[in-house]
Amino acid sequence: MTTAQPAGTNPGKSRNTTATDIAYIAVFAAIIIVLGFVAIPVGAAGVPIVLQNAAVILAGLVLGRRRGLATAAIFLAVGLALPVLAGGRTTIAALGGATVGYLVGYLVSAWVAGAIAYTAPFRTNRGAALGILIVAGYVALFFQYLFGVFGMMWRLDMTFGAAWAAQVPFLLPDAVKVALMIAIAAAVHAAFPDLRRARARA
């Protein structure tokens, strides 16, 4: 005896989509981890210039808000046991330092980047889509800064203005990194248009 499936559903396709999502999330989490080997100390607060923050935004731009958030969450979860954060730190160690706010910012920025990016008309208007990706990337970066500022105010007893001033050395490097991530995301969406449609079907 078989049970009829609701009209319009396809369990096999749903399982394939879930497996594909897991693969995408794993790949991007691995990319973020690998980029943790690059860290350049700068600024009076001792917060390094890293590539991981840009890679988290890239995950959101490419995968969308849910998969992007899942990628950032898995990356931080792995960091609970292994030193995968920039500078060879664990998530637990970072939670006790000045960079705690940036970890929260990673989660928020991945979600924000994906939420904005997936409103882009990738198939019908690539110019507008690129503009939306630009907005998504830099709004996501702003949230990383914002939560980073709150973390520094908490851990270092800095004023709001002083904590924002500590971000200045990172503005240009981060702007360049995010521009690169936006270009990569635009190329990925152009080459793999099913990325967005698969997420919508799921």
Rank of each mutant, 00 (worst) to 15 (best):
T2I: 07
T2G: 11
T2M: 12
A4F: 11
A7N: 10
R15N: 10
T17E: 04
T18I: 15
T18R: 11
A19R: 14
A19S: 13
T20E: 12
Y24C: 06
I31P: 11
I33D: 03
V34K: 04
L35M: 14
G36R: 03
I40L: 09
I40Y: 07
P41G: 07
P41H: 01
A44S: 14
G46D: 09
V47S: 11
P48D: 09
V50H: 02
Q52I: 06
Q52N: 02
A55Q: 09
A55F: 13
V56K: 01
V56F: 05
V56H: 10
A59F: 07
A59D: 11
A59G: 13
L61C: 00
L61A: 02
V62P: 02
L63F: 06
R65Q: 07
R66E: 10
R66K: 14
R67P: 00
R67F: 00
A70P: 04
T71A: 01
T71G: 03
A73K: 10
V78N: 13
A81D: 01
L85G: 01
T91H: 09
I92T: 09
A93D: 14
A94S: 14
A94V: 15
L95P: 10
L95K: 14
T99A: 12
V100W: 09
Y102D: 01
L103Q: 01
Y106W: 14
Y106K: 04
V108A: 11
V112H: 08
V112T: 12
A113W: 06
A113T: 05
A115D: 02
A115E: 14
I116R: 12
A117Y: 00
Y118E: 15
T119W: 03
F122V: 07
R123T: 15
N125C: 05
R126E: 11
G127S: 08
A129D: 07
Y138N: 06
Y138I: 12
A140I: 01
F142K: 03
Q144T: 15
Q144C: 07
Y145H: 11
M152D: 10
M153W: 09
D157N: 15
F160C: 00
F160Y: 13
G161L: 15
A163N: 06
W164G: 05
W164S: 04
V168Q: 11
P169L: 02
F170W: 06
D174S: 13
V176C: 01
V176W: 04
M181W: 03
I182H: 00
I182C: 02
A183E: 04
A183Y: 01
H189M: 01
R196I: 08
